[in-house]
Design a protein around this nucleic acid. Structure first.
Lengths: 344, 344
DNA sequence: CATCTAATTTTACGCGCGTAAAAAAATGTG
DNA sequence: CACATTTTTTTACGCGCGTAAAATTAGATG
């Protein structure tokens, strides 16, 4: 039963019997005060439920405890999942995550960063849109705020990059597909939004030529983030154009394209899978949350969400806590795991 | 080319030749100053790129321009989509949306609201977890901050509720299913997390009895938000238990359950669809973004995302702008559309 | 118990802006 | 142009907290 409501730190100083500067120290870092005073403060806190005014704090602290998280498209469960990981990690580290989605729009990405700058974040974790991003503006932002890029690497932007090892994972997948059937044709958008797509295309080419095989590509025209629709349209066209051989294998640049391909195959009466009576194999990439419920279940390569999130935040916090920016830009890549399922 | 960087409103007053109090008025509401002075300010703004310190502003204004948006589970594309709508609407209305996900955890929901209270939001749009929510704490929050509930209605919490008309849409669906085939069995979780699920169950019962049909239920045990997995397990059990008749029809409480059911049907070698050679029909509810790519495409009922988002924000802003809470609690429901596709 | 060190208290100022009140200036009106 | 009205300027204070410096106190050590 709280008595009269505490209005500010001054009043709380009175009821707790602790001086205001000491309280200020405590709220800034509970470990910075003597154990006994900390106990007294927390006892008083239990009685009175006072919390410092967040605006007054941040106005005077040069460094807030805010961490911006910007993802290109939150309606994509892949990013929702990474964001969820990052949020909880931030909270555990005693920071306040501010989640923003660019909704696939470069202008929104810029305004998100603008909005973040206004709240003077300690740092920002940024998964950029990629090709569509306003490079110039992103660069300016990265210059003024400690920033770690994740998922998509853009030039030399930001203080670090943490992402997925596309070369290794595409290698894993191509090896698997070749061992269990014919070599795959690579299915992708002709002008991908995401830098990962370019890496995967390149990786596929390298891996295939290393195996002495001829790379084949199906490039679907399409823009934006409606990958399933693009995959569907592209597959429909491919099925009728004769570019695919009998019992051929399609390796999609990502799972969402693959979901579209599976849907097109179903509508075309093509059976997807590894069995003898199947017409087609389809594989994806990313281990999208829904890929285990497609029909058939989608064979794919997982990304190590957890490790990527953790490492990205680590990189950021080490800068935040040391108080100075990275001297050189590090890149960390995590390898995924092959997830063989029914579709290939 | 900005000259020396403007540090505060005082300095901007000097370079713009406008007094600080007038500037303060302008930033609070550009229309509150004379047109000519507004032009002068904006001309100076174009030259110097100064922006008021957001913390100093909010410290002194009793009402911030922040609007909290809390959803139960952001990794669900359904909520991601609604959140996206709300965010853009907030921005357009000149407010700053703060998006929070409870990640399916009641404790996170409470701490989200706690965090929001700390930033003194003008109002909050809350889609509660439902059954799992800490009613007491939500009630306290709604008491202290103007709050509009959406998606899930809890008791008489908040100043208004905006949601989906489950009775009408289940009616639409049952009518359709009965016209095009046999009457459906209702497939759901035995202890749903979401109040909508209870409404749908009840609606199904009402509609069926009104038609003189016997309601049938398949209730799957399962907790949490992993609906696809729950749907899959439940369907697998149902297929072998003999509760389903030949060419029976399953109406799922939501699309994500249906996606699990489709996956189970595929794994069981059951053909889903309306054709004569099919073993089963499956329908869902919500028009989940992925339901148009399932195999076969999922027949479902759409929710009117746009209208729900718009109406919820309207209700909130009318309170914010008038400055006082609603005298009585309004509920608004929007009807969805039947989306007939291949699965039923 | 004397001594040293680390922690706390006292005192005081500043952060950037909201806002109130009175004075001054700009605008509108006949 | 005199007057009333609206807008802006001047002046001043307050918001809640960070933080620096000096004085004081508590705790540790031998």
């Amino acid at each position: 039963m709280a008595t009269s409501r505490i209005r500010n730190m001054e009043e709380f100083a009175v009821v707790s019997g602790i001086s205001r500067p000491t309280l200020s120290k405590y709220f800034n870092d509970p470990d910075s005060v003597r154990r006994s005073t900390r106990d007294r403060i927390e006892a008083a806190l239990a009685r009175h439920d006072y919390r410092p005014n967040i605006y007054a704090i941040n106005q005077n602290r040069r460094l807030t405890k805010n961490i911006g998280i910007v993802v290109p498209y939150l309606a994509d469960p892949f990013f929702a999942e990474i964001a969820r990981n990052l949020e909880t990690l931030c909270l555990d580290a005693g920071f306040r995550p501010i989640l923003q989605s660019s909704h696939g729009e470069p202008a929104t990405e810029v305004s998100n960063l603008d909005g973040l700058r206004a709240i003077k974040p300690a740092g920002v974790l940024l998964a950029p849109l990629g090709r569509a991003s306003e490079k110039q503006q992103l660069a300016e932002f990265c210059n003024s705020v400690p920033t770690v890029l994740f998922d998509s690497n853009i030039d030399e932007l930001g203080d670090a990059f943490v992402g997925h090892d596309n070369l290794k994972s595409i290698g894993l997948m191509v090896d698997y597909l070749c061992e269990t059937g014919g070599p795959p044709v690579f299915f992708e958008m002709d002008r991908p939004t995401n830098p990962n797509a370019y890496n995967r295309r390149r990786s596929y080419g390298q891996v295939m030529t290393a195996k002495g095989l001829e790379p084949r590509y199906i490039q679907v025209e399409g823009d934006g983030w409606d990958f399933e629709a693009i995959g569907y349209r592209g597959a429909m066209r491919a099925f009728t154009s004769g570019v695919l051989g009998d019992r051929d294998t399609i390796l999609c640049s990502n799972d969402r394209l693959a979901i579209g391909v599976l849907s097109a195959a179903y509508d075309s009466g093509l059976r997807v899978g590894c069995d003898a009576d199947c017409d087609l194999r389809v594989a994806g990439h990313d281990d999208h949350p829904f890929s285990q419920y497609t029909c058939p279940r989608l064979t794919t390569v997982s990304q190590n969400y957890g490790a990527i999130a953790e490492s990205a935040l680590d990189a950021l916090l080490s800068m935040v806590e040391s108080g100075h920016r990275a001297t050189e830009r590090h890149s960390v890549l995590y390898v995924g795991n092959l997830v063989p399922r029914g579709s290939a």
